Simulated assay, not measured.
Amino acid sequence: MPNPFNQQIIDEFRANHGRVGGPFEGARLLLLTTTGARTGAAHTTPVAYYPDGAEQVLVIASAGGAPRHPDWYRNLVADPRVKVEDGVFVYDAEAVVLEGAERDRLFARAVEAEPGWAEYQAKTERVIPVVALRAVPKDGPPTMAVRSPGEAVQVVHDAFRRELAAIRTEFGRNQGTTLGAQLRVNCLTLCQGLTLHHTGEDTALFPFVAGRDPSLAPALERLRREHEEIAVLLDSLRRAVSAEDADPAAVRSEVERLTAELEAHLTYEEEVLIPALEPASA
């Protein structure tokens, strides 16, 4: 069983699809379930993570600079097949412990984003591990802990809202004249996620909704046009972020522009789609 503090976070995380309050409000958290190296029992731990493109997320086994690796890390070394809950999706993943130059590069990127990691490393003689969690491909739709398709739309939208809020907070901390490497990755990962999400809606969700309620055709056409407009904003953000001498102020401006347009789009989409996707009341 997790300790009472962790259990409270786990319960709140699951009840609110990844949103928690208190000292971790606004933080990027996931629930990592490993198999006990000695007991073989499942153990779930809240862990901070960093985005790293569409294929993986990164977690750091700091244990606050303790002399021993955390239990979850020792477990995944013994059995790298783990379960991840990110507030939207639940999926099996392969945990890959990064080594050598790759580990050092990504740890340095994390330190640039949050200097506390360096403080933890200074407190211990062990090399703090960096672990990549890579989703295991599966057939069929992704697993979501939701009760209805309408709730799924809301949960996904809220996750994008949280990520944009986290990025805007990070810009508030980025006071230098250069764009932080992890902040750059966060922006690009967000762009990837939104592009994939809108492609899935255009090709699968919208045709499904149109088949259920043909009267929604004009609203769905508006949503498709808004996807095209948001795609232009995503391209502008990608170009601003990817510039060799990326100007943090210019990138932040693109993020703010995207946030305003996306929020209006998400709100309208929720008004249109959620009632159409909820089960009819008896």
Rank of each mutant, 00 (worst) to 15 (best):
Q121V: 02
A243F: 06
G53H: 08
R162W: 07
G100I: 08
A145M: 13
R225G: 13
A249P: 13
V111N: 01
V146Q: 04
D247T: 04
L32E: 09
Q121F: 01
L190Y: 04
A78F: 12
S215N: 00
P46V: 11
A204R: 14
Q8V: 07
A132F: 09
C187P: 05
E270V: 05
A145F: 06
P23I: 09
V153A: 06
D11W: 03
A243V: 07
D202V: 08
E269H: 06
I230P: 05
W72Y: 06
I230R: 02
H43Y: 12
A113K: 05
T178L: 13
D247F: 11
T44Q: 07
E85S: 06
T178K: 06
V209D: 01
F208L: 09
E271M: 04
M144I: 12
P4Q: 03
H17G: 02
E263N: 07
V153K: 01
A165G: 07
A93F: 14
E114V: 08
A231M: 05
S148D: 10
Y268A: 07
A118D: 00
H69C: 12
A276G: 02
A181H: 06
I10H: 00
R38Y: 08
F206T: 01
V156M: 08
L188N: 01
S236M: 13
T177Q: 15
A42Q: 15
P141Q: 14
H43L: 12
A118I: 00
A231L: 07
A243Q: 14
A250M: 10
Q56P: 05
E263V: 11
S236I: 12
P207A: 09
T143I: 10
C187G: 05
L262I: 14
E229H: 14
V272M: 01
L58G: 03
V59K: 02
H227V: 11
A249D: 14
L106N: 00
R126K: 15
A231N: 12
R173D: 14
W72F: 09
R68M: 14
L31E: 13
A15P: 07
L273P: 00
R168P: 09
L273W: 02
H43Q: 09
L188K: 03
G64F: 05
V156E: 14
R103W: 06
H157M: 08
A250H: 08
Q182L: 12
G193S: 08
T203R: 11
